[in-house]
């Protein structure tokens, strides 16, 4: 038998893999086609014609802009909190061994490992038990909780690759703890934090299950979309919003990929 490692794949495997990738991508590509259809009452295929008028219509919709603003604001605040908490935890877990270390990694992963509906309803019942009114902040509270894990995953991977002797050298050369953090640790973990932050932003921007439980009157963009999905009223606008959402979430993913591809992988698997 031959044993060259560059052997090409069996034909059947190639076909199965290609079909699988098509299955993953065709539905998303369809969104782009539908954003330009002239049909506004049904989901007719093939589209009877193409137009760009819905882009303008969507641009002038104040409800879409308001929802977008709320989503961006929540995602930004939740990401900031997640970066601080995730980095602290990653630093502590990766630089020392202590009692309860395993329990802490489990605690971080739990909000994402259990179905979102459990996180959502737990928070909702806790808010109602404590008579906390729903606001943007209750949504932030929920989002930050499950965003910590993505920052943590990225930061832990980078800390593992950063040699401890760099930090010791910094101390030996006379830097204090804060200088070491500012000039040695931060430049080393910076891109990992940026990547983790972007993934956290994408995760929060897109979140709907926990949000439905922790929002009152506030409408984030996913909540707006969900209402359109349940009761379609303005299909063309929804098509355009869907396309924009795909584009907006793709940018951080591709950027995160390029920021972390040297050596370690983007910890997207833990979404």
């Amino acid at each position: 038998m031959r044993s060259d490692r560059e052997a090409s794949a069996p034909f059947g495997l190639k076909v199965a893999a290609a079909c699988g990738l098509l299955f993953l991508h065709v539905p998303i590509l369809l969104i782009f086609v539908y954003a330009f259809t002239t049909e506004d009452k049904t989901y007719q295929w093939p589209p009877p014609g193409f137009t760009t008028q819905w882009l303008g219509v969507t641009w002038n919709r104040t409800d879409v802009w308001e929802a977008l603003t709320v989503s961006v604001k929540i995602a930004a605040i939740a990401t900031l909190i997640a970066i601080v908490l995730g980095t602290l935890c990653a630093a502590a877990v990766s630089r020392s061994r202590f009692f309860g270390r395993e329990a802490i990694s489990l605690l971080i992963i739990l909000p994402i490992a259990l179905p979102g509906i459990i996180t959502g309803i737990s928070l909702r019942s806790a808010f109602s038990l404590m008579d906390i009114p729903f606001s943007t902040w209750t949504i932030v509270l929920g989002h930050a909780t499950f965003c910590v894990v993505v920052v943590y995953n990225n930061a832990v991977a980078r800390f593992r690759r950063t040699s401890g002797s760099l930090i010791e050298a910094s101390y030996d050369l006379g830097a204090d703890g804060f200088q070491t953090f500012r000039y040695v640790i931060l430049p080393n973990i910076g891109t990992a934090l940026l990547a983790g932050g972007m993934l956290a932003f994408a995760l929060s921007f897109d979140e709907v299950i926990v949000t439905t439980f922790t929002s009152g009157q506030q409408q984030t963009l996913p909540i707006w979309m969900l209402e359109e999905l349940v009761r379609p009223r303005q299909r063309p606008v929804t098509n355009v919003v869907a396309m924009v959402v795909v584009l907006v979430t793709l940018i951080p993913i591709i950027a995160a990929y390029y920021l972390t591809r040297e050596g370690d992988q983007v910890s997207g698997a833990g979404k």
Binding site: P27, I31, Y43, D206, A242, V245, V246, T249
Partner: peptide, 28 residues
């Protein structure tokens, strides 16, 4: 890698919406 990551991270609702378009009676 990107071919797997992009659908993973694409909006959950948009993915469901895409299937609503696909499976509609008049759909593709």
């Amino acid at each position: 890698y990107l071919g797997i990551m992009l659908p993973l991270w694409s909006s959950y609702l948009v993915k469901i919406y895409a299937w609503k378009l696909i499976l509609a009676k008049e759909g593709i």
